[in-house]
Design a protein around this nucleic acid. Sequence first.
DNA 1: TTGAAAGCGCTAACAG
DNA 2: CTGTTAGCGCTTTCAA
Lengths: 344, 344
Amino acid sequence: MKFHTVKLKDIAKELGLSSSAVSKALNDSYEISEETKKRVNEYAKRINYRPNPIAQSLKQGHTKSIGIVVSTIDNHFFSQVINGIESIAHGKGYNVIITQTNESYDIEVQSIKHLIFRSIDGILISLSTETENIRHLNEINDRGLPIVFFDRVSNAPNTHKIVVDNFTGAYEGTMQLINSGYHRIAHITSSPNISITIERLEGYKKALKDSGILYKEDYVKYCMHGGKYPDEIHKALTEVLSKADRPNAIFTASDRITTSTFTLLREFNVQIPDEIAILGFTNTQLASVLDPPLSTIYQPGFEIGKNAVELLIKLIESKRPVKEYVTTVLPTTLFARASSKMLK
Amino acid sequence: MKFHTVKLKDIAKELGLSSSAVSKALNDSYEISEETKKRVNEYAKRINYRPNPIAQSLKQGHTKSIGIVVSTIDNHFFSQVINGIESIAHGKGYNVIITQTNESYDIEVQSIKHLIFRSIDGILISLSTETENIRHLNEINDRGLPIVFFDRVSNAPNTHKIVVDNFTGAYEGTMQLINSGYHRIAHITSSPNISITIERLEGYKKALKDSGILYKEDYVKYCMHGGKYPDEIHKALTEVLSKADRPNAIFTASDRITTSTFTLLREFNVQIPDEIAILGFTNTQLASVLDPPLSTIYQPGFEIGKNAVELLIKLIESKRPVKEYVTTVLPTTLFARASSKMLK
DNA sequence: TTGAAAGCGCTAACAG
DNA sequence: CTGTTAGCGCTTTCAA
């Protein structure tokens, strides 16, 4: 940015004051007379003065920007979360740097380094599917950089977390399938490294158990990269479809896995729901106009984002070390549609 | 960020050198002996030294970050563009600040101010539907801040632009409808303020003309906010459907308008394509599994993003003022599916 | 109530 | 080849 911007010194010169006086006036210091404050503020406004945030950051040690780490932006759930984050952050004068991991642990580590390098004031993160340990996060958190987890959280005790009630969401979804007459329910899910996979699996198991249906381990297929590679979903699905005791329903555990599985079933010419019913987590707005309409479990992405930044900003701006950490749990919403309708 | 970071002075002290010597060594200056360079670099790496980018920015006057302005991130086209942008930017050491206008002129102006305030080195922008004049951009461009337009561009001559061939895309799409037997084709589009609306309208008109079909002005409905308010699409569609000479096809001009119109037609219980055929611009991956499969015009979002940043970074890093500006035009791809299949 | 001066961490003239 | 010094724009003691 080469273009000349007006700076403190300019307005000091113009008004016959010192830079420090102007700085104080602008910051409404008690040391400055009301009259000078007025003069300074009026002139500053007139010439549209803006303090250089870089210089402020250097001096003050914070940047008023926060980093977001998600697996990918091209996903309704995450873009809704980001909208929620921005809706609050901008209002409070923070701006937001978004980075994507593409479900890779290495890129996650790199992204975080990059964010720290950029001197952000705090991090909002949903872990990648590959992430098994969070040493890279603990370390910086311990050194004092605030971190808030959302969606895919870790079991680290010393930070805030925002999640949806994955257990209940999965339980209700599985129950809907069972109540519609499907008793052989496969589960295609993401990597067991991440929290949501475990919680959703537990909800699924509990629904089976409560209904007196035997849990079969080989009905559960993991996509270790969260569906990043189309191949892994393809493989999971064909394995499940070629079983001797072929399931008659599939419960899918994430946005991409749900829509991809649906698309593949259609490509395979499998009749939905007559041959295979399907119900899964996804935030797509097109669920009701798919063929057939897709049963979904919806997550309040916008609210997750809002809650997460609010906590983060509170952490950043807190004067004293925070010792109490909260975990906020938001409900999911089940939309039962034709893809899981009553078995004939 | 409170945690103590190691700085130049620390390593200077440790190695018995001056800060400037260390700085030069780290920057591989010709003034420094190979031996000291080696000593410095090794030690720096060992203690994991990272220069403070804030301080560097203050000194050097650039921040190695670029601003993106789009209408909304929750849109396949834009999230693909952003992926393209990041794929290049990160590799070149730039990071990216994304802002959304929500199709509002006021927010656009504010976002740009915010980005300038953040001292970004350049801007990548797709105009909001409300934007009629670009004085706010010309001014900063004239003052020397590089700007590259993509997708929704202005007619400002003094900058690079990346667009798709909207005219041909619309022409081919309309032709596909005509060739399938639909001759009463309505057009639901965005605000006529923005370039893509005009170009797509022209393509549509040309296809009609080349086919000997009379262009009717009242077959064209504008959504002044690009479909941000569901009401405007609803209104446009009901107006078009209630005409005496009701159209038998609709050509829709943007991602959100296409999917929303499709959804509304289904809600209205209009048979697609028997009563109304539909074909439109959208990058959704679900087109083929909608009911019925949706005919789409796809835009190479990722490539648009890549091209746009490459040009922007070239602009930013160019030593001498750039006088020659290019406009890159990328092709669209037509996917004809059942929603516009041959009229019985 | 105001100003002078130091310093945030780094780079770059200029000296040596 | 290396060190001294000044300065990027701002804030903040401290002195006046």
